[in-house]
Every structure is written in structure tokens, then in C-alpha cells.
Amino acid sequence: MPIHDQGYRRYGGGKSAGRAWLVIMTTGVRTMLHDKRFIVLLAASWIQFVVRAVQFYLSANFSQAALIAPNAATFRDFFDKQDIFVYIVTVTLGARLIAQDRRANALQIYLSKPLTRAEYILGKFAILAGFLLFITWVPAVLLLGVQVVFAGNFAFLTANAYLFPAITLYAAIEVTMVATAMLALSSLSTNSRFVGILYTGLIFFTSALSSVLRFVTASTSLSWISFGNNLAQIGDVIFRVPLHYQTPWPVSLLIVVLLTAVSGVVLERRVRGVEIVA
């Protein structure tokens, strides 16, 4: 029997518009959750949460442990310690998000469907941002809850009412900057390994350059050269802890905004259904 005789049915059901980015995100998340190594990585990223929870329990229940009682700096430090996992998740997951699609010519498949380039980018952004928030914002907010549960009162939360907004704001800034920068790099190549190396190089090179300048100038006023330093500076302001560097925090904020904007421009130029070489 010829193949075509096996039938093709016209579709009579409904179609919904405007949720393509959600489809991209859920499919991306589902795909990653099938990767056992990635699950192990996610689990490892929650170790600090467990350690901090024990710390909160001890400080709440044993007067001898009052020295390790949580404060705003504890939460600021929590984000600092999570940076290594932010880096690993960004490189392992983010590097492939657009690079692999470009390698497989998938962009013309995506963009021939009823979705805009912005929806495509939003979907990819949401995959990476979702996992990054899962290892930063979610455990940090849960730690606040854990503190209330172990202390048995809202005294800490009331005294540090700015902490929840601070956690949310800092996580949002960090995740937005990191995810857009990685997506922009991912859109520049078809090789996800190369993208990972490029991202690593940028992080470590700017950090090393900042350290050298610090040594040469005996000052940290040029710390804005490092992306990580800028985030740290903004984090210090948000969590109301002493600043790490002499760079004015508005300069750091400006650098972060500029980096995010440049990433957006790169994405706008690179995510297209057709690559035109004039």
C-alpha cells in the first residue's frame, strides 16, 4: 500500500497563540531533568542550604552557638558561595541553548512557527533563569523560612524586613545579567564547548585583570573591570553590608546594565531565521 494511502487527517481542534515561549521553557526544563549528571549538579548546589539550615537550627536552639546567628551578611555570603554553582550551571546548560540550535539550523524551524524572535529568546532565557533561580533565590528564600521555623518567632524577619526584597532583587539582577550574557555568547557560535570556554575566559580574564590592577594601583577603584566584582558591589549595597571595593556602586550598576543591553543587542542581531552574508 502506498504510504500516502495511510491517510492524512485535517486538524479540527483549537490552537492557542502566545504561549510558545512557555513551550520552549517547559520542554527545555524537562529535557534537562532527564540528564542525571545535571540532577546531581542541582542537588550539590543545595548542600550550602543544608549547612546553613543546620547553622540556623544550632543558633536558634543553643546559646553556645550565638556567634553563628544569621544576619544580613549571612544571606549576602550565601549568594557569594553559590556563585560557583551559578557558573557551572550557566556553562553546562546555557552554552548549548542557542549554539546547538544554530548548529542544527533549528532557528528556521522555530521562526517558521507562530512565535517571534523575542518569544524564542524569552523561552531560552527562561530555561536558564529558571534553573539559576532554583539554586539562588529559592534556597535563599527558604532559608528565611527555615530561620522563622527554627527560631519559633518572626523577630529576625521583622528586624530584617528588607531581606526578602533584597534577596529577590539581587537574584533577579544576577540571573538576568548572567543569563543574557550567556545567551548572547551562545548565539555567536555553533559550538557550545567554545561558548563555555569563551564565557569562562571572560569571567577569569576580567577577574585576573582586576586583581593585577589592584596590585599595581594599590586600590580597588578599577574593580569594575571584572563582571563578578560589579555584581558583588551591587550585592553589598542591596544587602546593606560594607562594600568590597572602592568603585562607586552606581558605576557597577551601569556596567551591569550596559553588559545586559549589549547582550540584548547581540541576541537581536544573531537570532534570525536566515543568516545573511552580504
Binding site: 540550535d101 542544527a104 539550523n105 533549528a106 524551524i109
Partner: peptide
């Protein structure tokens, strides 16, 4: 695009 289908010329798939 909601009403059309496109079969590109070169190899294309979602990896």
C-alpha cells in the same frame, strides 16, 4: 506563520 508550514532546504532539526 500559524497557517503555513515550511520545509527548509537544508538539514534542520531540534537537537
Amino acid at each position: 506563520r500559524a497557517r503555513i508550514g515550511y520545509m527548509p532546504e537544508n538539514d534542520a532539526h531540534i537537537p
